[in-house]
Design a protein around this nucleic acid. Sequence first.
DNA 1: TAAATGCGCAACCAAACGGTTGCCCATATC
DNA 2: GATATGGGCAACCGTTTGGTTGCGCATTTA
Lengths: 114, 114
Amino acid sequence: MSSRRRRLASERQAQIFAALGDQTRLSLVARLSDGTARSITDLSDDHKLTRQAITKHLHVLEDVGLVRSVRSGRESIFELDTRPLNELQDYLSRVSSQWDDALARLKAFVEDET
Amino acid sequence: MSSRRRRLASERQAQIFAALGDQTRLSLVARLSDGTARSITDLSDDHKLTRQAITKHLHVLEDVGLVRSVRSGRESIFELDTRPLNELQDYLSRVSSQWDDALARLKAFVEDET
DNA sequence: TAAATGCGCAACCAAACGGTTGCCCATATC
DNA sequence: GATATGGGCAACCGTTTGGTTGCGCATTTA
């Protein structure tokens, strides 16, 4: 409602975008999108990066809620949470539709003038 | 088709995500989503940042195709291009639906077992 | 109990990022 | 022609980021 709320909301969107704005993290999300919960070493085996590098990336994803982790014995199991992805989809569709509407109005205005 | 192609594709998505992963740039996109093409100083007036800072951000957006610029007289006019946004929407919906499908299969499998 | 596996933590490093300042050029405006 | 406006370019700077290495701890497994 208030412009303050919208400001805060877009800050969150920016954070999620930023979290996805890294090839490694995006591939982790893609890897986890098959519905399987995986351990850190499991996820590390796909990349040439160190386990610690993957760990850092997973924490970035966790901080924005794109991923949840559970400790099971000696390993940390990560699984995807698609809700932030849906948030982004909504945000993008709002921007796109605002653009489309604006163009439609502009077109109507121009046609009205001629 | 090939895994190489998909790899390159997701690299592009990551770049667009990264471009949107900054509060200032995201606000520029939002500002331009009203269908109006604006000059750099025009866009700079909204923020407390320097004109040069805004210029840099606009070039980042331009590099990933989120924005186009045209020189008109002594000013550079920028306008939004929503196609990359649609790309992201598609990408996100693919990931989400893959997740949903996987969960559905998992559920069906579990119910089959019991 | 000893060895192996999976992680977490901290320190460290180079590169990228976001931002500023200063200067100069081109285009409008008076 | 003189002045004001809009913008490009380059240098510079502090902070963040992505990555590594080293070490220690807890949990399995032999």
